[in-house]
């Protein structure tokens, strides 16, 4: 597979590899894909009190473009509000990395991952609000 230099760079030097504590309330976790399909992405975002993503980490099982898509995504979401982050489109990722057509699904997976992470954070926050009400 002939990849762009950007894909190769992210693959060789992946940014923000790692994990946060998924039970931390300031953390949103998105895990998408399936081993049987050949790719699984775990994207985690850490949100500060102002609703801004202060840090992001990922781990990905998948091909080179899946790893590059998730690595790039962690760079992009840092410093963004949840609303801004949710506006990231798979086409932006595919364009930035010049993904070949057969690898577009990797960028779709990355978009799914950030949405899932945001949803996870929001549902945790709602849960917290409900608990506080009860208390």
């Amino acid at each position: 597979m002939a990849y762009s230099d950007k894909v190769l760079d992210h693959y060789e030097n992946p940014r923000n590899v790692g994990s946060f504590d998924k039970d931390d309330r300031s953390v949103g976790t998105g895990m998408v894909g399936a081993p049987a399909c050949g790719d699984v992405m775990k994207l985690q975002i850490k949100i500060d009190d102002g609703g801004v993503i202060e840090d992001a980490k990922f781990k990905t099982y998948g091909c080179g473009s899946a790893i590059a898509s998730s690595s790039l995504l962690t760079e992009w979401v840092k410093g963004k509000t949840l609303e801004q982050a949710s506006e990231i489109k798979n086409t932006d990722i595919a364009e930035e990395l010049a993904l070949p057509p057969v690898k577009i699904h990797c960028s779709v997976l990355a978009e799914d991952a950030i949405r899932a992470a945001i949803d996870d954070f929001k549902s945790k926050a709602e849960g917290k609000a409900v608990q506080e009400k009860i208390a």
Binding site: M31, K59, Y61
Partner: peptide, 8 residues
């Protein structure tokens, strides 16, 4: 494997 959520 350090990069793999499945390994983790």
């Amino acid at each position: 494997r350090d990069l793999s959520p499945l390994w983790e």
